[in-house]
Design a protein around this nucleic acid. Structure first.
Length: 479
RNA sequence: UCCUCAGUAGCUCAGUUGGUUAGAGCGGCGGACUGUUAAUCCGUAGGUCGAAGGUUCAAGUCCUUCCUGAGGAGCCA
């Protein structure tokens, strides 16, 4: 009874929200001669004194709807003001198109101009623009085909991430964004403070007195939700975080952002092999979801941005990832005879050129490397019996490099504490983390997936600043 | 942060060993055209050459510093 009422209300509300026909639906419709109302933004207008054609886009799909206007029966001044970028509403008849290039079109009865776009100053032209230029007008670039496609895909991937984990019975955990711990020691952090920078309270030895700050201690924006994810995994079983992450590194590359989104599953009872299985299944699910749900956008990107995109996505979905140890990778690199700029030897971290060689030249396939030397990996990783490696795993993708970094976690209290002391970390500040190993500890594993790096791969875009609506990078926080 | 390259019209770019009044395509504007597909054709306006110094009779062009952007490296997701 209650359920029926809800459905009824929901339908009424949806009707009110959708006080127009959506172009995505109209392009599939065969209800010819029916009257429709469409609203959207003009991409191009062309024609002559008799007939004009408006390509209308409402964001629901990459394709435009052709509006046919019988010029003599419309106000010339109104038509003059309908230019690229203008927002209009059109009432008319949906008909089979007389011209080539589209199945259906709308013969306009009336056209209402909601908002003009002065062609003298509107920055988007009918011609293509460079991505660098569009970055400078990020508030308008969503109106282009490419960025419309990218952000529809971004939405679909975010949705698919929640769907995957929800269907798996995992719980979405909101890790804090403000944190007092610098747990991973992963690079520079953004300070969060309400202290007046021009009048800082000082302690007796002339240092900033953070006890006077909002939280009574120094705080920062999070660089990872992993440690909190571990706490929850050891109660809820399987959890994942999906939220913004902040790194104040002065990184100027097409693969780094100061503010990015990260997905971090953390799963109790999973060892490193379960972890690899999860990572591979997860990535394949997401890519397959894009192929099944975003094909129009992918086809556009395939034709305009990256000719091998769809082929590459299908390849990843259909092939097993190569799994091997760090040691095995070193042996392959040493035996390759390839001349690398940086040295290869056991104990040194792999450089970008080494990872690229393995993925793009040697295996030509995604690769998962495990069991890295403990000295080059984080303190929380499960220590192997050989005393010199840890159960880390990096998933390496073509074009992207490291798309996932993760590990089985050290669940043994004594070993974890020894490692924390060995690295000179502030063990007192990690009391809560160590408590999970004091009480009811168990094998568990997890990893971090950079959302924008996933999007780089799925969209074929080359620069990470072009897969997030408003990128934050050194010297740039515009919009 | 380091290395390399770039910054000239609204956009994308050309501009010779320094030498008259800085060019093109696209876009805009005006016109032509009875169904166009980033329409086509004719015409037209539009520039503090990233900023500040310097060298020179003369600088878009050479030198210095700075700013911005891109690519590579490092850090990592």
């Amino acid at each position: 009874m209650y359920f029926c009422t809800y459905i009824h209300i929901h339908i009424i509300i949806k009707k009110n929200i959708m006080n127009r026909s959506v172009i995505k639906d109209l392009l599939k419709s065969t209800e010819y001669e029916s009257k429709v109302l469409v609203k959207g933004w003009v991409r191009t207008k062309r024609g002559n004194n008799t007939v004009a054609f408006v390509a209308l886009n409402d964001g629901s799909i990459i394709h435009n709807l052709q509006i046919v206007i019988d010029v003599p029966s419309f106000d010339a001044e109104l038509l003059r003001r309908i230019n690229t970028g203008a927002c209009i509403g059109v009432k008319g008849s949906l008909v089979e198109s007389k011209g080539q290039g589209q199945k259906v079109e709308v013969i306009a009865d009336t056209v209402e101009l909601y908002g003009e776009a002065d062609p003298e100053v509107y920055p988007l032209q009918k011609k293509g623009h460079s991505f660098e230029f569009l970055r400078e007008i990020a508030h308008l670039r969503v109106r282009t085909n490419t960025f419309g496609a990218v952000f529809r895909i971004r939405h679909a991937m975010a949705f698919a991430i929640h769907k995957y984990f929800n269907d798996m019975g995992y719980f979405y955990l909101h890790a804090p964004i403000i944190t007092a711990s610098d747990a991973e020691g992963a690079g520079e952090m953004f300070r969060v403070s309400t202290l007046d920078p021009d009048n800082l309270p000082l302690t007796e030895d002339k240092k900033v007195d953070y006890s006077k700050d909002f939280f009574g201690k120094a705080t920062n924006l999070t660089v990872s939700g992993q440690l909190e994810g571990e706490l929850a995994a050891l109660a809820l079983g399987g959890v994942y975080t999906f939220g913004p992450t902040f790194r104040a590194e002065n990184s100027n590359t097409p693969r780094h952002l100061a503010e990015f989104w990260m997905i971090e599953p953390e799963v109790a009872f999973n060892d490193i092999n379960d972890n690899m299985n999860l990572a591979e299944d997860f990535l394949k699910y997401l890519i397959n979801y894009a192929l099944e749900n975003c094909l129009d956008d992918l086809e556009f990107l395939n034709s305009m941005v990256d000719k091998e995109l769809i082929e590459r996505l299908k390849f990843v979905v259909n092939n097993k990832f190569i799994r091997m140890s760090y040691e095995g990778a070193i042996e392959i690199l040493l035996a390759s005879g390839h001349k690398f700029e940086f040295p290869v030897s056991w104990g040194l971290d792999l450089q970008a050129e080494h990872e690229r060689y393995l993925v793009e030249k040697h295996f030509k396939c995604p690769v998962i490397l495990t069991d890295y030397p403990r000295e080059i990996k984080a303190f929380y990783m499960k220590q192997n019996d050989d005393k010199r490696t840890v159960r880390a795993m990096d998933v390496l993708f073509p074009r992207i490099g490291e798309i996932i970094g993760g590990s089985q976690r050290e669940e043994n209290f004594d070993k974890l504490l020894a490692r924390i002391r060995e690295l000179g970390m502030p063990e007192k500040e990690l009391w809560w983390y160590l408590d999970t190993r004091r009480y009811g500890t168990v094998t568990h594993s997890g990893f971090g997936l950079g959302f924008e790096r996933l999007l780089l791969f799925v969209t074929g875009m080359a620069n990470i600043r072009d897969v997030i609506p408003f990128p934050r990078t050194p010297k740039n926080a515009e919009f």
